[in-house]
Amino acid sequence: MDKCFIVDGHCDSIGHLSNQGRSVSVPNEGGHWDIPRAKSADISLQFMAAFIETKFKPLMATIRGFELIETIRDFVEDNSDQLFLVEKKSDLSRIPDPTKIGVLLSVEGGEIVGENLFLLDIIYRLGVRSLGLTWNHRNALGDGVWEHETKSRLTKLGQEAVQRMNQLGMLIDVSHLNENGFWHVLELSKYPIAATHSCAYSLCPNPRNLTDDQLRALAKNKGIVGVNFYPGFLKESGPVTRKDVVRHISYIADIAGVETVGFGSDFDGIDETPDGLENVSDFSYLLDDLTKAGFTSKEIKQISGRNFMRVLSDVLK
């Protein structure tokens, strides 16, 4: 098979840099992701999330979010010989770059804007190009998946946020949003949306996963789901291996079309991984597994990176 480039829709490695002192630049510090291992795996574009921890919410969420954004920007600048920031549609033409990994700055949790929509424009100016409207809890935009009993749609501010993100050219991430909020986003968004790190509910009934109806709706929206590598989202019980990741990819491709699925590893944001997929350098084995599962070379290229690139090309300005 011709060489693929990989787009990974979610990792939390910047939290390790901020909290644990890992440089994320050398492989002997542990963790799931660092620059050398990512380059060895042909990662061409990495979504890097600024995850705002619960202890900072609500009062310190904006400050913590800005701190993490600055950490990501500093990380890219300090490693500018190996990384570059993706901010415009024209930046996508640089992917794949044989020497550098593109970094797309995302924020996991709309708490960063508090109740002030103008902060969306500020984080956009700082380079943020993807925002998860919620984490698992409620905020001023909507309800997360742990609030599913409320069956709430987006708040008025959440609706305005979707419309403003469309205008700015920001990818709307619904991975942690409750189901009614998901449907509300689809009613409002004029552009494709993403569940950057989720799996199929029919295979593992976790509230973080997407139902068949949601998967089909994403396909109609020309959006994408990045399959998450967390064992708890892949299988209800028992050992979890790379084959379970392939099982979810295959299922989503069957339900919603191969153009609707990609990778969303959640590396460095999960405390365990499937056997045989312990860190970013193991992506090559996953591609081999997709070949063995019957995917064509063209389909694997779509899954590994081109689907996310298409969505970003539709969304970014």
Rank of each mutant, 00 (worst) to 15 (best):
R22P: 06
D2R: 11
N209A: 05
L312W: 15
F229M: 02
V315L: 08
K292W: 02
S198L: 09
T196G: 09
M165K: 09
V315W: 08
F295D: 04
D314W: 06
G30A: 08
N221E: 04
Q302D: 00
R306K: 15
P192E: 01
V174Y: 05
F75C: 03
G30C: 08
L92G: 13
K57N: 13
D212R: 09
R306V: 04
L104W: 08
D143T: 00
V162A: 06
H148F: 14
Q214L: 03
L154K: 09
G102E: 03
N136R: 12
T62A: 11
G264W: 04
L234H: 08
G114I: 05
A41V: 00
L59T: 14
N166F: 09
K88M: 13
Q163D: 04
V128D: 00
S25I: 06
L215A: 08
R208G: 06
S152K: 07
S281F: 04
S25T: 15
I101T: 12
R125S: 15
L17E: 08
L117F: 08
Y251P: 10
R37G: 01
T134S: 09
K235V: 06
T211K: 10
K89E: 08
F267L: 00
L117V: 12
G257Y: 03
G132T: 12
P27N: 08
D289V: 01
P36S: 11
R208F: 07
R242M: 02
D271E: 11
F295P: 05
T62M: 06
N279S: 14
D271H: 13
R247H: 13
K292D: 13
R37Q: 02
K100G: 07
V315S: 06
G110D: 05
I249N: 01
E67P: 04
R306Y: 14
Q167L: 14
H148K: 12
E272A: 11
G102W: 07
V174L: 15
H148M: 03
V113C: 13
V76W: 05
V261N: 05
G110S: 07
V107K: 07
C199D: 09
D121Q: 12
S106A: 15
F263V: 02
V185G: 06
G9L: 06
F308W: 15
Y124R: 05
G142A: 00
Y251H: 15
T211I: 04
P274F: 04
N228S: 00
G144P: 02
S13F: 14
K57G: 09
F118M: 10
W33V: 15
E236G: 09
V245W: 02
C204S: 10
